[in-house]
Design a protein around this nucleic acid. Structure first.
Lengths: 254, 254
DNA sequence: TCGGCTTAATTGTCCATACAATATGACGTA
DNA sequence: TACGTCATATTGTATGGACAATTAAGCCGA
């Protein structure tokens, strides 16, 4: 009982939390050096005068925090003296990621089949000489409102039957394509450039000749390859791309 | 014994893992609707003919996965029928985040004290009328190489003594500032714009008048407020900002 | 010296039990 | 009707115990 009070701060925390803190501090202080084995569960159980279950709960926390790895037959090995610290940016959906306003209104201007040249193939993620479908359109704030951006979407020819459904579809095209694809979207690559706005796009968006744009290129990649690659051409003076990046000392899911 | 075999797939998995899978499937199937209470630990213990500890382990998994929340005195309430599925982009350091080439070479052109006007204050995260320190500089590929971008860095006046160390410091300034700040950097906000390149910056970068830029504004925010806000002006034709976003069905730290 | 076997140590899984802490519902009284 | 009290249900914390699975070290024989 007296040994217990000496070893732990009496903070009203559960015992396992107090042991966590003690052990974490020792790791940070290098008392258990990286690469070494910590005392066994039994040894810690005796030191803290607690049951093995309580010790295991504390060690579980250390493992989840990235300080140690635990292996049956070996023991608890120290792999870090700092808790995992990453910067991350996470999104609950791709819409949120791409800051697409839900209420925007998309108008298809035309659909055609194109043969990819080398440079374009590299950008959309296809092969030179392949046939892809190009859909030109304009995204508006609302029907009859202001134009937001000019959109060129490139889709592999094998999704021709899906493209036919695009004009009646008000959500993102990638969602429609994902439903018909082998597997779900695993990665999205976005590239951002400042470029002169092509003149015929300027006309569609009501801009003066010689205007500039922020061009966002996005490739949506599933297991079966690129589903769609879209160039969004935003008028430069109407577009700020904002990213908020947070530090996490915990798993973001906590 | 027979009841046990009926309820669980005999997969060689630990019992708690088998129960996890069963319960997860029920959640996905809507057998336990969102908002409802799942059976109590005791009920599940009887159903699966397992100890309460084993049930708790399975429920812990469901909680960590975001399906349920558990409250003492209430029970286990369903809050989702899908596991957390997020898209994320994580970085092990801010250098990686901002695609800063380690080997670049920064030259300070000048340091002055400025009083923030309203618009600038909003961008750097200060207050109009405040004194901040402005450091102008150019980042080069290497000493004597090509210019990469023009950099305007704004630092609160209270870090005046730290700014004095900037000229001899080849790493990122935010790291130096973080060491002298109250608390570490918790968030970085980055804004990307396509803008005409200011003429005196054009001159410094060897560009023709009328050139355009991609402007990256970054605010590094600690508990005590903004540490530094930097405008990086990149020549438009020399800059593509690339982001790779991955889907994760697990906590990114795993 | 190398390989196989045995033993001991260590963590992983599972159980039963007990008490604490919190929430909820029912009942009684003002 | 509102508030207080009490009983019950539920999850959280903690203990002790047992057996399983894995690893490492030591020993022995070829």
């Amino acid at each position: 009982m007296a040994a217990r009070e000496d070893s732990l701060l009496n903070e009203g925390l559960p015992r396992y939390a107090q042991i966590q803190k003690s052990l974490e501090q020792r790791l940070i202080d290098g008392i258990y050096p990286i690469g070494s084995l910590m005392p066994s569960e039994q040894e810690l159980s005796q030191e803290f005068n607690s049951s093995r279950t309580t010790i295991r709960e504390a060690l579980r926390y250390l493992r989840e925090r990235g300080y140690v790895e635990r292996r049956q037959g070996v023991g608890t090995r120290v792999i870090s003296d700092t808790t995992r610290s990453t910067f991350f940016q996470s999104f609950s959906s791709l819409d949120e990621l791409f800051q697409v306003a839900i209420e925007t209104y998309y108008v298809v201007l035309g659909v055609e089949t194109v043969v990819l040249e080398q440079e374009l193939a590299e950008m959309v993620g296809g092969l030179a000489g392949e046939e892809w479908i190009l859909i030109n359109g304009v995204r508006w704030t609302e029907a009859g409102g202001k134009p937001i951006c000019y959109v060129q979407s490139y889709v592999p020819k094998r999704f021709e039957h899906v493209v036919e459904q695009f004009p009646g579809h008000q959500g993102p095209f990638f969602e429609l394509l994902e439903r018909h694809a082998e597997g779900s979207i695993q990665e999205v690559v976005q590239e951002i450039r400042a470029l002169p706005m092509p003149q015929d796009f300027s006309r569609q968006l009501g801009l003066k000749p010689g205007s500039w744009s922020m061009q966002l290129l996005r490739r949506y990649v599933s297991e079966g390859g690129v589903l769609i690659a879209s160039f969004n051409w935003h008028p430069a003076d109407q577009m700020t791309y904002v990213m908020r990046i947070h530090r996490s000392r915990e798993q973001p899911a906590d």
